[in-house]
Nucleic acid binder design. Structure first.
Lengths: 347, 347
DNA sequence: ATGAAAGCGCTAACAC
DNA sequence: GTGTTAGCGCTTTCAT
């Protein structure tokens, strides 16, 4: 057990008040006293007790990051960035996984195991907007990704419609006209896939093409296996396809795998594109064309947003008047790589 | 802010003591009283205050997982498993990243920001065994991976010598005799690479082959880029190579990329193998042969080990006599896939 | 079976 | 500039 403030005070021959002042560096302390206290602090290798500070101050310095799956490269990368940025802001990151389970999402939302965290950043998957809004827990919440709850809760999001339109235009520009999409998730409340589908259809319409339901494939999850299965399904059905735009890099990597397995040449026979820009995609064979959302901005915006809420909860000012919920849109970039770059084979 | 115990007590017309008993379900409470208290609890939607419990009880229920990099698939997967298993044990997981920075490792070891956690599980990278042992912080520690500190600290590890020997034998069994290894890390204190090198050399010796220093390649980090650079270096130097065994799947994926880029056929011209069994490897083109450590066992063993320490710190029993440090060896499996399966081309 | 009260370590309002 | 002290919400010993 570490030394307490009182022990340090006794040793230095001062009161706890003075030691506390030295530790927090707040009030003025006589230089000589400060030196004496500092020595006692060092000798006893004092560490402030986090529990006491939390109890007293009402802030734990903990922020929860709630994601569907940490093993997914996208969320792994994001979590890593959040951990670093939280650290830079003297916050600690509590990571929680939901596995896409609605009950688990609800449970975490209600209060991460006994009100330990000051606030939470969540990437919901299965919860409806209504459920997201009704939260007994009370800690400030920032949402990641499209939620159909725009304007009612703080959230950080990429312009999925525009991004999907950009990608589809790129594929059309390559001369591909039978473009399939893989990644619809009609069973989820998460609106991301719906927005991307919308962007895709917009681009088709611009080019005077009619969307073909057979080329819009739903998946249950966003793993490689799902992408591979979807690709095989497309091929088995005999649907003519010269490009696939997958709604995640994982799906695209799976689709690439399945296409290669069936002897298709990518990109000659089939162009393959993803979404997320995870490292795997850069080193895929061939490297994967993708949409790169500005991840650094996502992390910064989410933490800024949360920090603002925390300040008005604990900090000075009018805590009654709830701040207007903010929607922050981060940028994205089309990253063209070899999986779509080559010419289409004549057919 | 949630209701306090005293508010509930007032409402139910009993003392805080009784409410506390109902909440913790510990002591005997008259059924009728219990019902009344329970109702008050529900009406006020009481949630125990974690800070107060922590201050009083000395346990926060938080466990830190300290890894070099969360964005690495291996650690991402592991972190995900830890999050789930911690949850099953009513613990919360605090995730910290070191980026392989020794200062950061030291800092986290010294006390994860003010003694918030009950214990920590760490995968050290750059810290020497001596530094790992001298810890002012005091919270129980379990190490992940080889550390050269065997027997002095609790740690969970795979049999890296045996695993590397298994893989090398597999490659030799395929008729490959010019086997290179990529992944030495002489600049680190982490002993993992050294052990794998040892297993590789043992297998070569068994086959009557002499290790060639030109075929033992060091890397700075374990990313795909490092594997690709190492592979290119090998090829540029003109060292004859018919197989590469990389000490991580990431390195192997990079090597695969570089080899393909240079027009080599895998596995015909070059067999490529990795270590870790991350999902990327299964969907690589071709799928990657690898060593699959028993990740579930790593997670279970590490948490069991930590739980045992926690019990003797806070729980009953003789807290003075420090338990014998434990070294737990988890199993591994050779996972043969297409990247080594095919026949070597005649040359 | 239940109540009263001490005290975990810290911060800050109130004295001087 | 520094000392004294109340109290954050909870658990638990000591009474009854």
């Amino acid at each position: 057990m570490s030394a307490t403030l009182r022990e340090v005070a006794e040793r230095a021959g001062v009161s706890v008040r003075t030691v506390s002042n030295v530790v927090s560096g707040f009030a003025l302390v006589a230089p000589e006293t400060r030196a004496r206290v500092q020595r006692a602090l060092d000798e006893l290798s004092y560490r402030p007790n986090a529990a006491a500070r939390h109890l007293r101050g009402g802030r734990s310095g903990l922020v929860a990051l709630v994601v569907p799956e940490l093993s997914t490269p996208y969320f792994g990368e994001l979590a890593g960035r959040f951990a670093d940025e939280a650290d830079a802001r003297s916050l600690m990151l509590l990571v929680q996984q939901t596995g896409g389970d609605p009950d688990r999402e609800r449970e975490l939302l209600d209060g991460v195991r006994g009100q330990v965290v000051d606030g939470l950043i969540m990437s919901p998957w299965a919860l409806s907007p209504a459920e997201l809004r009704r939260r007994p827990g009370g800690a400030p919440l920032v949402l990641l990704g499209e939620q159909d709850a725009d304007g009612l809760l703080d959230h950080v999001v990429a312009d999925n419609v525009a991004a999907a339109r950009d990608m589809t235009r790129h594929l059309l520009g390559l001369g591909r006209t039978r473009i399939a999409v893989i990644g619809l998730q009609p069973h989820l409340h998460n609106a991301t896939a719906a927005r991307r589908l919308e962007g895709y259809r917009q681009a088709l319409a611009e080019a005077g093409l009619t969307p073909d339901p057979a080329r819009e494939v739903a998946v249950r999850r966003l793993h490689r296996a799902d992408g591979a299965a979807a690709m095989r399904g497309l091929l088995d059905a005999g649907t003519p396809v010269d490009a696939v735009f997958c709604f995640s890099d994982q799906l695209a990597l799976g689709a690439l795998h399945a296409a290669t397995e069936r002897g298709l040449r990518v990109p000659a026979d089939l162009a393959v594109a993803g979404f997320d820009d995870v490292e795997d995609g850069r080193y895929a064979n061939p490297p994967l064309t993708t949409i790169a959302p500005d991840k650094a901005a996502i992390v910064t915006a989410a933490l800024d947003c949360l920090a603002a809420r925390l300040d008005r909860t604990t900090g000075p000012g009018r805590p009654d008047e709830p701040a207007e919920p903010r929607t922050i849109v981060v940028g994205h970039r089309l990253e063209v790589r070899a999986s779509t770059r080559g010419p289409s084979s004549s057919r």
